[in-house]
Design a protein around this nucleic acid. Structure first.
Lengths: 164, 164
DNA sequence: CTCAATTCGGATAATTTGTATCCGCTTAAT
DNA sequence: ATTAAGCGGATACAAATTATCCGAATTGAG
């Protein structure tokens, strides 16, 4: 039950993109460098976000990554699912089917233990689904203050992306 | 974000113990054999449950594991925490501290991204905390039916544990 | 009271998973 | 044509998970 650190990277990357002008893009090297992360590995996560439909990529000179839809329509769950997969965390092995009591009671009925964990996960996901990248970017931007936001815009311009 | 399979084993083991007479115990070999699981590895998980105060162990001949408190007072979260630890799943690396915008805004304030994930985890845990081993055992027992419950009691007796 | 059987407990090995990098290929702008 | 950039696969490396073994402690019988 550990969240992969790639999820943290991916959310931060999406938050940066959401802080640019709508439709603006940055390449993998820039997104990695903003947080001083290894570019090669960050690129792999960005590819996963593209496969999941969270980001869109443009190849060739002056290419890069941009959000595939509006920041308000991208949830934290979308990002986590892109990196870790959307399958259940609790994978019921149905060990109840083995042993002296197997065969008693309808085996079609779901395992009560698995149900409990699946429901708990549903609540986890529901909370992340309710939080958008737009919200995150707004909160982070507010904490940065005017000077920090200005610094961010300068950085984006240097990297060839149009600031918000 | 994968739940360790040991959690499933541990919950099933606790559910079995909760189906016995109050205070009755079973050894690691018996608890593993009930679901046809490797005894040596099951024993390791049972030890973790003891360290967490969920189970109590007795050594020597006729020893074994028993619930450390009433089934109604043991939650699924207690068991998961015993196996996986109670620390947060999302471990914020504070990567926001690096890069061109570091130092802007009060660094003492928590990272909004980490907060969102921590809150989602809290909802996950809250649901598991609300479900007791007693509930699980009741549901599983109901599904087993009279014949299945009788089979379970016979098995427990063979293994030297007093049935409920 | 000793001895042997039993059982837990910690240390140890094997396997899988996650982390990270590199290279060839395709694509697009200049 | 040349350069910039993403894409996918192959490949090391590190860490966590899975699994097993052997010693220490306890009980009960003789």
């Amino acid at each position: 039950m550990k969240t992969l650190e790639g999820v943290e990277w991916a959310v931060h990357a999406c938050a940066v993109l959401a802080g640019l002008a709508p439709g603006a893009s940055l390449n993998a090297a820039a997104l990695a460098d903003f947080h001083r992360l290894p570019a090669a590995y960050m690129a792999k996560h960005l590819q996963a976000l593209v496969r999941a439909g969270v980001l869109a990529a443009s190849r060739g000179g002056r290419g890069g990554y941009r959000l595939a839809r509006r920041p308000a329509d991208i949830s934290l769950w979308d990002i986590q699912a892109a990196i870790e997969g959307s399958g259940p965390s609790f994978r019921c092995q149905d060990i109840r089917r083995e042993g002296p009591c197997s065969g008693f009671g309808p085996s079609e009925l779901p395992c009560d233990i698995a149900c409990a964990f699946v429901e708990a996960e549903a609540r986890y996901r529901a909370h992340l689904k309710a939080i958008s990248v737009a919200q995150i970017t707004r909160q982070v931007g507010a904490k940065l203050g005017p000077e920090g936001r200005s610094r961010f815009n300068d950085w984006a311009s240097e990297r060839g992306a149009k600031p918000a």
